[in-house]
């Protein structure tokens, strides 16, 4: 995303006048539920990657209410979500925590404020681009794309490190080297692309994103 677009996105936000909670409620998926959090901390104690991230969902929700916009949208926490849904089923106030974290990640990512090079942000972007290209995931190009995300040299190193697994998958007929030439996909690709484009256009308009 260009700097001009980041500026345009930021100027769209002027109407919130430092009211970050209202911004989240209006623009983030399931953001209207943030105010329901009662700070019990069950989510923090239920997360499998809990020890690895900077802010637990509980902290993120309080930071939103405290107006800590830069800290929340720049946090790596949302990208540590494995989508295990432990926090959702345990939350006594029934906040859809997983969805709010996904929503915040998407919002921070689209505004260009999410941490640069964050591995899951990079992988998740590759994943969406991979699946929308042909309508179905191409596991081979996705995996190779991830190995080579930091350049050729580190990519070859990672790929060599993983070659025994790759070979075993190949022999078990669970990896297809021919996928490099295309692989599985939907037949009505034109229609599929039209749906994705139209949905994105509506969402961008609603949330004030500039592509």
């Amino acid at each position: 995303m260009s700097n001009a677009n980041v500026q345009a996105n930021l100027s769209n936000l002027a109407r919130y006048q430092n009211n970050f909670l209202r911004e989240v409620e209006e623009r983030v998926e399931e953001g209207h539920m943030v105010k329901m959090c009662m700070q019990c901390g069950v989510c923090a104690g239920s997360c499998p990657f809990g020890p690895d991230w900077e802010h637990s969902p509980q902290k993120i929700f309080m930071m939103i209410r405290a107006g800590k916009r830069e800290e929340v949208l720049g946090s790596d926490s949302m990208f540590m979500c494995t989508s295990c849904y432990n926090c959702i089923v345990r939350c006594p106030r029934e906040l859809p925590i997983t969805h709010i974290m996904h929503g915040l990640a998407n919002y921070a990512h689209r505004l260009g404020l999410a941490p640069k090079g964050q591995p899951t942000r990079v992988f998740a972007t590759m994943f969406w681009n991979n699946l929308t290209k042909k309508g179905r995931v191409n596991e081979l190009t996705l995996t190779l794309g991830l190995y080579f995300k930091d350049g050729l040299v580190s990519g070859i190193k990672t790929a060599l490190g993983m070659q025994s697994i790759g070979l075993a998958m190949l022999l078990a007929k669970r990896l297809n080297p021919m996928e490099i030439f295309g692989g599985h996909g939907v037949k009505d690709l034109k229609g599929f692309h039209a749906i994705v484009a139209k949905a994105k256009e509506i969402e961008d308009r609603k949330k004030g994103f500039t592509a």
Partner: peptide, 14 residues
């Protein structure tokens, strides 16, 4: 992990 780039409506639409 579709949420990050895909957002809400594109994900639901597909």
């Amino acid at each position: 992990v579709g949420y990050c780039e895909g957002g809400e409506l594109p994900r639901i639409a597909i």
